[in-house]
């Protein structure tokens, strides 16, 4: 479904990604782990069209989307739940969700999708008139995921969705990710919660200093000594 090969990204003279290649098959959960500054968010944002890569290919459903602007990438069916949630604080919960239906593709079933999102997150239905900035961190994360679903993505990229959340909320986020996967979505997950996310992973990659240094199935990486030392402290 998604194929990234030889991806380079530069910020000015600084290289953020170097020859990154990864692959996600339809209905897989693919996990990317790595330290802060390893380039995880840069990778997600480059796939999403927010950064223009200096080299490499990003193929989604057989079409090269590298360098396309975000709104076209989203239109093709790639959704992002961004780091820091990135809700619209002064817009109501409902308006935030409406904005999620930005792709034309998603407009026809907007009402039905909204009901589905409210079914998944009843809290959002209760607070639909409230400004998004007044929600708790966990509720904002639900809103960010709900907003992404409003665009009816086929592939959903989640960038550190549990960051800054309570353990209970973190569990809730992982429950939702499993649910979305069960519903047939392909998931690309970037997480600092390495143990929990690798357990979910069909396929996983370790990113260090902008390079993929290790890849394999989730269980393989969980058993890898380097991963255990560096990310699990075992």
């Amino acid at each position: 479904m998604l194929d990234v090969s030889g991806l380079d990204l530069h910020y000015g003279d600084a290289q953020a990604l170097a020859g990154v290649s990864l692959h996600a098959q339809a209905r897989e959960i693919v996990v990317i782990v790595g330290a802060n500054g390893a380039g995880k968010s840069s990778l997600i944002r480059t796939i999403h069209g927010m950064h223009r890569p200096s080299a490499g290919r990003i193929t989604f459903e057989g079409i090269d989307i590298a360098g396309q602007p975000s709104h076209q990438v989203v239109e093709r069916g790639i959704g992002q739940v961004a780091e820091g949630r990135q809700v619209f604080p002064n817009l109501s919960v409902l308006e935030n969700l409406e904005m999620g239906a930005a792709p034309r593709r998603a407009r026809a079933q907007e009402k039905a999708t909204l009901e589905r999102v409210f079914g998944l997150f009843p809290r959002l239905a209760e607070r639909r008139r409230q400004a998004a900035g007044t929600l708790s961190g966990g509720e904002q994360q639900m809103l960010a995921i709900g907003r992404c679903l409003m665009g009816q993505p086929k592939l959903i990229m989640l960038d550190e969705p549990s960051l800054g959340l309570s353990p209970a909320m973190t569990q809730e986020v992982f429950r939702v990710v499993r649910q979305l996967h069960a519903d047939g979505l392909t998931i690309l997950l970037v997480e600092q919660n390495v143990m929990a996310s690798l357990k979910l992973a069909n396929r996983a990659y370790v990113l260090e200093n902008g390079r993929i240094v290790l890849s394999g199935t989730g269980p393989e990486l969980l058993d890898n000594d380097g991963v255990r030392q560096a990310y699990l402290g075992l």
Binding site: H48, G49, H71, G100
Partner: peptide, 10 residues
């Protein structure tokens, strides 16, 4: 309200 958020939703 949120420039990055606007790019994120497309």
């Amino acid at each position: 309200d949120n420039h990055v958020g606007a790019l994120v939703v497309g």
